[in-house]
Each structure stands twice: as C-alpha cells, then as structure tokens.
Design a protein around this nucleic acid. Sequence first.
DNA 1: TAGATTGTTAATCGATTAACAATC
DNA 2: TAGATTGTTAATCGATTAACAATC
Lengths: 206, 206
Amino acid sequence: MNADKIPDIIIGRLPIYLRALQRMSEKGMKTTSSQELGEHVGISAAQIRKDISQFGEFGKQGTGYSIPFLMDKLREILNVNKMWDVAVVGAGDMGHALARYQGFKNRGFQVVMVFDNDASKIGQKVGDFVVEDTNKMVERIHAAKIKMAMITVPASAAQAVADRLVQAGVKAILNYAPVSINVPNDVHVQHIDPSTHLQRMTYYLD
Amino acid sequence: MNADKIPDIIIGRLPIYLRALQRMSEKGMKTTSSQELGEHVGISAAQIRKDISQFGEFGKQGTGYSIPFLMDKLREILNVNKMWDVAVVGAGDMGHALARYQGFKNRGFQVVMVFDNDASKIGQKVGDFVVEDTNKMVERIHAAKIKMAMITVPASAAQAVADRLVQAGVKAILNYAPVSINVPNDVHVQHIDPSTHLQRMTYYLD
DNA sequence: TAGATTGTTAATCGATTAACAATC
DNA sequence: TAGATTGTTAATCGATTAACAATC
C-alpha cells in the first residue's frame, strides 16, 4: 500500500476496471491480464498495471490477475465493499428512473429516499418509495446519516438543493441538473449532463 | 483560428463553458471575464483563457468576453449551431426519461426516434414517439441519416446494439448501459454510468 | 488616463508510455 | 524449463500555471 496521495485521474479509472472485471466474472472468467483488461476498457496495458500497482502487488508474473481477488481489492480501495444509502432529490422522469434503477445494487449503492417539493408528487409512490417533502429533507437525511445524494431537479433549483444537502451532511453529490454547482471543499460533486456529453462528440462530426 | 489538432481534454471543457454562459445569459448578463467564468465552473482563469484562445481572439482586454458572442463562437466550434437528430435505443425508464427530456432542445439536440425489441413496448407511446422495432433500426436510422444515438438497453445487449448503430451510420454514441462498448475509430462514444460516478466519490468517503 | 483583463510565453507540474528485470 | 506477464524505472509527452506585455 502506498501512503502517497493518489491522483484523482487514477481513482476515476478504477470503477471502469471494476465494472469490466464484474462483466468478465459474470462470464465465468477467473483470471485476466493487463493486456486483456485494457482491450475491454480501451486503456493501455502499461497504464492499467501502473494504476493498480499504486495500491499493492495484486498480480502474478506469467499469469496476470485473479479476477475475484482484484475485484475485492478494488472494492476495498473504492469503499464499495459495503452498501451506501443514497437520496434522490427530484421525482421527475429522471428521479423516477434512478429510484427504480436495478444497476445500483451490485455496485455498492441503494436508493433509500426520494424527495420533491411539488405537492402533487409528495405522498405518491415512485418505485418502492413514497415521495417525501423537500422541506423535511435536511432533517431526514441528517437523521439517517446519509452521505450521498443525486440531484434531478431543474437547473434553476439545483444550487439551492445542493446547499441544503451539504447542510444535511451529504458529502458526495451526483448532479443531473444541467448546471455547475458549487460546494465546500470537503464535498464531492460529479456532473451528468447528456447535452454536455453529446456536445463533446459533435465537435468531431460535421 | 488554429489549424493544429486541439486536445480532446480542451474540447471536453468547451460544453461546460457554453452551459455556464447560457445560464449567465438567462440571467441577463452581457459580458464576463475568465475570472468570473472560472468561478462558476471551477476552472482556473488562466486555463479558460488558454482554452478559448486556441480558436481565436474572442475577448477584449480590460472588459473580458461578450457572452452572446462567445456563446456563438463556442456553438460554432462544437457544431451545435444546428439541431442534431438523436435516436434512443431502449424504451425502459431511462429511455423514457431521455425521450421526454426538455433539456436537449436549447443545446442543439432533438430525439426523433425510440426503439425497443420488446413486443409489449413496440407501438406504445413514449413521450411524443411511438416505440419502433429494433429490427427496423438499421434501416430507419440509415434512411434518416441519423448520426447520433443513446443506448439505454441492458448491459448484456449494449455491444450488439452499438454494432448495429455503427452499421446504420451512427458516428456518436452516448452509452447509458453499464458496460464499456467498443466501436471503430471513426465512431465516438461517451459513457454515462451513475454507479461509476458514485464509486469515484466513495473513494474519498469513509 | 488608470484600471482591468486578455492572449501568450516560459516554467512547472503531472501523466503516459516504453522497456525490461524479476519471477510465476 | 520456456513463455508469459507483472511491477517499476526512466524517458517522453502533454497539460496547467504564473507572469506580464499588450491594449481596450
């Protein structure tokens, strides 16, 4: 184990590796090499070896990496060898999709609450959840010690929601609203905006 | 204008700048500085000036950048000064949310078709669209000259769908399936996977 | 004019790649 | 053993930052 600070760009690749390993494992594969894993994820074998070696010697010369072992190690490193409770704020189409999404549970996450400020939505069912009033959000999230949330409200409301999530003790926010949000240094934010992703590709089209 | 190849990492920041400028413009602002824009998006002023200056001299010493002018230029550079037709493949919750999403239209995109292979979904309405049979997809997309698509099918089907999209002439894919997909060099892919984004943050939590 | 801010250069910093000894 | 593949080093490559002359 390396005590130095690991660059965030490396941290960002670990979930990609883990996801590919999960797929391989589902197919019954027991071992892989940096070469093979690299072909799956589109990253050079040298970089994969370098990334992984930041955290320990998890491979074997001549045979490569044990898939279950490396998955365990990556889950440990990423802190997803446990389940994280996640709150969804915004019960529109996207909040609905996230609340019902089956892809979280084998990746370390479970949605546990859904909030909205629209009276016509509060009390309604969304997936397995009853939509709760945003007014109760800070209290509820704080009491449940929830550290992660996803924002699916309109752009105009996103910053205010983020502020309240921070107030409630949330330390990681996945923001689906198409606007940059600002949070204190000890809070992490990731942005998902389909238009932004599409625009990154149209540059190369004509 | 610079004829050299612009690094993709710079291209990736332009949509972020454009999005922030759109917000500023909605608030009635007419000009901004690299300093101010940087505070909004969390990027240094020096980097913003350097990025923008790759494409021309769009600012004025002493006063900064005209917001409408810079938006125009960024739209031109990113090829979103026109509307792009986009196909959605997969009419589950996520496909549904994307088909109805109101955030595309002022960013240069419009969904025009939705496909699924589930007989119980084909013919049903999703937003303004009637779900079409995936069997007709290659033909339909090719005939309509559609160059962009979003994949919201299960991970196990994503690669096969991607292959057929490529066959149909699609050059840019936004993949919501939680699996890496491989495409030819002239096709662009962006991945959106909420679990991956969340895992990138749990590393820093405890 | 004085103040503000760009565009650009050079320096610094960080990330990726190539190569190979070690070793399974 | 022979072949394969890791972990690591050094070299290369690329990105970011700091600083400032130019100029609005």
